[in-house]
Design a binder for these strands. Structure first.
Lengths: 219, 219
DNA sequence: AAAAAAAGTTAGACTACCCTAATAAAATAT
DNA sequence: ATATTTTATTAGGGTAGTCTAACTTTTTTT
């Protein structure tokens, strides 16, 4: 049906919010190329194929929009990715930062049964190890009601429910800082000078940089 | 490191026993082409690549032999295949005949950790759902001390420990016959006329054709 | 509104994997 | 030992997905 490459294009477009509603609107060829780390000329060729398959809409020199079919398939791939991440984390005891790369491969396995059986085996989880919601079989994804630490006001108390950046580099740094999914914390101060955020968790006070704060999601 | 295609060539060569010791000896290009359902001309081209990578040995117009590196990688792929089959069968409750196709995809997932963690999670199984032995991390595979039902003498009592043919067609037929892995049975008669085998299991007497008997392994 | 910059497209080339058709070498049969 | 058949190889072509370099269209700046 779809190649792994095609699925990666659809996923990237979904990530960029190239949706007619509920997203950031149409995406550009260059923007997509940047997201995929593939040259614009190559992306242009692939877009022709995706248009012919009815997965995206695009006029000559125009912006790219996922069709309903494209959106549904993108969500299906995201669903598989997040279920596999959950499996690797919960059952095989992979660490937070190891799951992503393997899930990038597993998400492309084609099987009618596999995804649903895996979901059942995992006990119908609602979020993956990074706190991202897992879409259901029909492609419905619970809306994210999360805010970055950088955006939350002083005095706000909550738990870390996710990250924006899934790179091993960032996740390992979080581990070193002692920050992990589910950790309760309170924002004690926003420091205007450099955007750092002072917070308190389990009786310990710490300061994280603006960049870290922008990539941590709290409820 | 290796593409899925290359791995499939190695696996096929291993299956054909193209080993300097312990196998049926060197394999031919046509034979390999038949096994893979790919044209000999294509196979010929791929063999050049495998030679350059040091995975097979072959002289011009000569037979094909796996090198030690080739054998080791083939066994690694077989190990992954059988571990995934076990996972699908034991944990996700796939049926006997459903596991193969999905495992054909999963066996190519590349990850240092994944295979070992999966093996641990499954409790270090020694055989897969078809009764085939699972190689260990170092590429050692317990020798098969199994015989087909057709070869076993009258009066022999044992359990079904495997099959030669993994096709869904055959496995579904076995289910219909009420034959499954682990079933205890006794061979009551070999019928000379057409090679059928009469057997008895759990008090029930049945006759299976020669073709079925040749594809069932007993201990 | 013209110039400059950015975004999108086309042309041509490369690798991986597959094919068919023709040819060369080796094995087998007569 | 020659003819036939089988096996292996070469030649040329196709699709998928990638690239660079050059070019065109649209957008932004001045």
């Amino acid at each position: 049906m779809f190649t792994a490459t095609e699925e990666n294009y659809l996923k990237a477009l979904f990530r960029l919010g190239a949706l007619s509603e509920g997203g950031k609107g149409p995406a550009g060829t260059n923007e997509l190329a940047l997201e995929l780390d593939i040259r614009p000329a190559t992306v242009n060729g692939m877009l022709k194929k995706l248009r012919e398959k009815g997965l995206v809409e695009q006029r000559r020199y125009g912006k790219i929009l996922l069709t309903e079919a494209g959106r549904l398939h993108a969500v299906e791939v995201i669903r598989k990715h997040r279920l596999w991440e959950t499996f690797l984390y919960e059952k095989l005891h992979f660490t937070w930062d190891e799951v992503h790369d393997v899930a990038e491969q597993l998400e492309h396995i084609r099987s009618v049964h596999l995804t649903d059986r895996l979901e059942e085996f995992l006990g119908y989880p609602s979020v993956d190890p990074h706190g991202d919601p897992i879409p259901d079989k029909e492609g419905r994804m619970p809306p994210e009601v999360r805010r970055t630490l950088a955006e939350s006001e002083e005095g706000h108390a909550g738990r870390i429910v996710g990250v924006c950046d899934n790179s091993a580099e960032f996740l390992q740094y979080l581990d070193r800082l002692g920050l992990s999914l589910g950790l309760r914390l309170t924002i004690t101060r926003h420091i205007p000078f450099d955007g750092s955020v002072e917070l308190e968790s389990a009786g310990i006070r710490m300061i994280i940089t603006r960049k870290v704060a922008e990539n941590l999601l709290v409820d």
